[in-house]
């Protein structure tokens, strides 16, 4: 295996990671499941391609710099998610999930039928701008942004919504607002991932953003562990690389992929990281929790035997 090949896989993993981190905020920290995030990726990809593709190509673009494509792609996905959220965030858990599924498919079908963007044949000639370095920087920014958000009162409010919605409301948390913010941020992440994806593949087609893609993103978040940023990072790398590593097995590789996911979920139902963070403070926290449980058990046992003696 040469470096270009490995680099290619890493870049794809890095792009997936951006989308997965966003979805991790929505699903892992706020407790809302989505099967439509490929739709937001599609919006990012198409808007990004439109901004940066040369006016001479067909379909024609605006020929503007890549940075603008990233900003516009993320913003467009965020804006659309705002309207989707206004309609669907009042729905209870499972129904919201179904609504996102419908939205994702609708977006794909719209791009399938709009000839201005190439229709089902796709959009060739997107400039190859997603460099290894650019993706790396985007991933670092994405992780730092998310980690800082989660460890603040805003992040804690989102977690409270996940844990117990009614209690969160009674604790003065504007549940709808926090769900909305979480959805918008996750959509912006997906949109940015879409821009990088388009400029990595240099060719986009609506069927790249099908339900399968949405499911893949959600599987990675759950595989990595809900409520863990480290889990999402590891999950994105492992599950993007796995099908590539298994490429030698040709048609069996997706079976192995499925088996690997099942294996993890059976042996670690809370996912690879199970809510834990691979940082010094994260490890300290888990150690403190285990310690506290041991102490509490010891205390209860001591009290129990004390009463018997009385």
């Amino acid at each position: 295996m040469d470096w270009t090949y490995i680099q290619g896989i890493l870049m794809l993993a890095g792009i997936n990671m951006i989308a997965v981190l966003g979805l991790s905020l929505l699903t892992g920290f706020t407790g809302l499941f989505s099967f439509g995030h490929a739709g937001f990726m599609a919006i990012g990809a198409y808007v990004g391609a439109w901004i940066s593709a040369s006016p001479a190509s067909t379909p024609a673009g605006l020929g503007l710099p890549f940075v603008l494509a990233i900003v516009a792609g993320g913003a467009a996905a965020g804006l659309v998610s705002y309207f989707i959220g206004r309609i669907s965030l009042n729905l209870k858990g499972d129904y919201f999930c179904i609504a996102t599924l419908g939205f994702g498919e609708a977006i794909r079908l719209i791009f399938n039928n709009v000839n201005r963007f190439g229709g089902a044949r796709g959009w060739p000639g997107v400039p190859s701008k997603s460099s290894f370095l650019a993706i790396l920087i985007a991933d670092i920014v994405a992780v730092v942004f998310l980690a800082n958000l989660v460890k603040s009162r805003h992040g804690r409010n989102m977690i409270a919504v996940r844990e117990e919605e009614l209690a969160a409301q009674i604790a003065g948390i504007d549940v709808f607002r926090y769900k909305m913010i979480s959805l918008i941020i996750s959509a912006v992440y997906a949109g940015v991932a879409g821009v990088f994806f388009a400029h990595y593949m240099t060719f986009i087609q609506p069927k790249m953003f099908s339900l399968t893609k949405s499911t893949e993103l959600t599987i990675i978040v759950i595989f990595g562990g809900l409520g863990s940023i480290s889990g999402s990072v590891l999950g994105a790398i492992l599950l993007t690389a796995l099908p590539e590593i298994l490429r030698a097995f040709e048609m069996w590789r997706l079976v192995f992929y499925g088996a690997a996911v099942i294996l993890i979920m059976v042996s670690r139902p809370k996912g690879l990281m199970g809510g834990m963070e691979l940082t010094p403070s994260g490890i300290r926290k888990v150690a403190a929790e285990r310690n506290a449980l041991r102490e509490a058990k010891a205390k209860l046992l001591a009290e129990g035997s004390g009463e018997e003696e009385d």
């Binding site: 009162r153 804690r156 977690i159 844990e163 117990e164 209690a167 809510g275």
Partner: peptide, 13 residues
Amino acid sequence: LFKNLSVFDNVLT
């Protein structure tokens, strides 16, 4: 309660 959070985080939230 916020069942999966620590006692401290319940109050901190």
